[in-house]
Design a protein around this nucleic acid. Structure first.
Lengths: 168, 168, 168, 168
DNA sequence: TTTT
DNA sequence: TTTT
């Protein structure tokens, strides 16, 4: 080992975790986490910039995330950067950077839309899990084609490692 | 501000810093930093994976980096993730993730090719600065078209913010 | 500057923040934050160890902490270690280590004892602030004598820098 | 597990690592690491403050540290805070905070007193290891009484866990 | 492209 | 897509 490659995130999930399973049963959870920072523009007006982060969790961490986290949950993630190279449908080489989470921690609690406590509040997440793209389309979102061209971050693995995509 | 978006890197520069200056004179230094981790593959053989990170430093930090760092230098960088959206020459939207460095620190010292101490050793870097692409082309490298299509990480800024590219 | 001295904490406050003000009006908030880790002892039983951290915040950060945090709040703190040397009443030199917080962030929300949302929930903390030792007395709490022998972490400053202790 | 308790240090060793071994042979290395920060005092003069950190490494990490690090080496350490309670010879309860290192990394290289490369330079450290207090006596060094009253950070363990002190 |  |  040589060097340090560490990422620390604390932010909100923009969508329920996307769960997938490798052929050997290993769980993979993909999170989309927002952090924001505020700054002053040249006119001195306060602006906010939101950054979206793609996080992948594996194994037990993935399972716990899938069980307890959902859209709006706050999460702490510690991990490392990984840039993957892949080829889009035009045959162009492209690169996608994600955070491989080595540890995550649910933080706080948030009233969900039905008025129940979630996350640390203790009740398990009985929702039907992530049912859609998980990606958005406005200016702050991750590449909208993630889910199509590469099914988010681990898509390149499908052919190579035989990931199967799970629908709920 | 809401959330935490923090990156900590400690690794080696794969090339001399690329220096650029904004019209107002603000210095921008782009670093390519390698970190590596070793792991065991399924056969139990030890493998090493190198990750390349694009780091941007600004202002005084950029100037100091340009003066003291060079290819082979080890550097500690603390910063945050930023993903930029840009359009490639085919008109496709693309995303590039870089680390905006809030703080960097030279570490250690390395004999350079002429046998003199560099970096922390104290002597300033009198080299002609980065004269080329700074990007490579093998499997571990950042997108090779960075330098052409988007002159590394801040290219999208050129039109928008009026960056001019500096040649030495 | 040379070197990196960084602490990252995410935990719960064991007591309301203790607020003090320097003669020039600068606010100082002292937090007692608990983190815990679980491990297996030699018999294979799962044990939990709680660590208590003394955190000092200054100026605007202190004011915001005093306003929004209270006992039971979860907080993220980023700071640095500082060890102070002081002399106890027996004339012995002693050392106390605290975290000087450079940034803090309230996280999550917790129903307080009255069933109202606190912290991020938005309502300001109108409580009478920290009225006692701030420490507890069982095995997991901060040393109870902190407040007597050294009035928590900055006590040594009182004579030296003229801090006055504020009661609410 | 609940919460995050993380320390990141990058600094210079003030002394050779102190090596000890538990009865079961587990290696323990104690490092004294200096970081410094500069600031301006009220008169606007630049001042530097050095902070000394007590770091404990265990097992393989300890062995590697004992082999490669020495006084003057630069090291990156990632770990967590731990405060121990102990009783001094006057029977007073006291607290000592140290960093339990979960990971360390040698960085850079430094010419040692004999003009050879050390640390990352590659040659193993064949020196007779830490033979003394490991602490100094001026204002910037670790408390000189650490080694006497509490044999540095793990002294409380000697009775409790049966550590034996190793002399070289 | 780096480095051990 | 999140949140304050």
């Amino acid at each position: 080992m040589s060097g340090v490659n560490k990422v620390i995130l604390l932010g909100y999930l923009g969508a329920d975790p996307e769960m997938r399973y490798m052929p050997d049963g290993t769980a993979v959870a993909n999170l989309s986490i927002a952090t924001s920072e505020s700054y002053k523009d040249k006119e001195g007006n306060r602006q906010e910039r939101t950054e979206w982060h793609r996080v992948s969790l594996y194994r037990r961490q993935a399972e716990v995330a899938g069980e307890y986290l959902k859209k709006g949950s706050m999460a702490y993630v510690e991990g490392r950067l990984r840039t993957r190279k892949w080829t889009d449908k035009e045959g162009q080489e492209r690169y996608t950077t994600e955070i491989v989470g080595d540890r995550f921690q649910m933080v706080g609690s948030r009233r969900d839309r039905d008025g129940q406590e979630s996350a640390n509040g203790g009740s398990k997440n009985g929702r039907p899990a992530s049912k859609g793209s998980g990606g958005g389309a406005n200016m702050d979102v991750p590449p909208e084609d993630f889910d199509d061209e590469i099914p988010f971050a681990i898509a390149a693995d499908i052919a190579r490692r035989g990931l199967r995509r799970v629908r709920f």
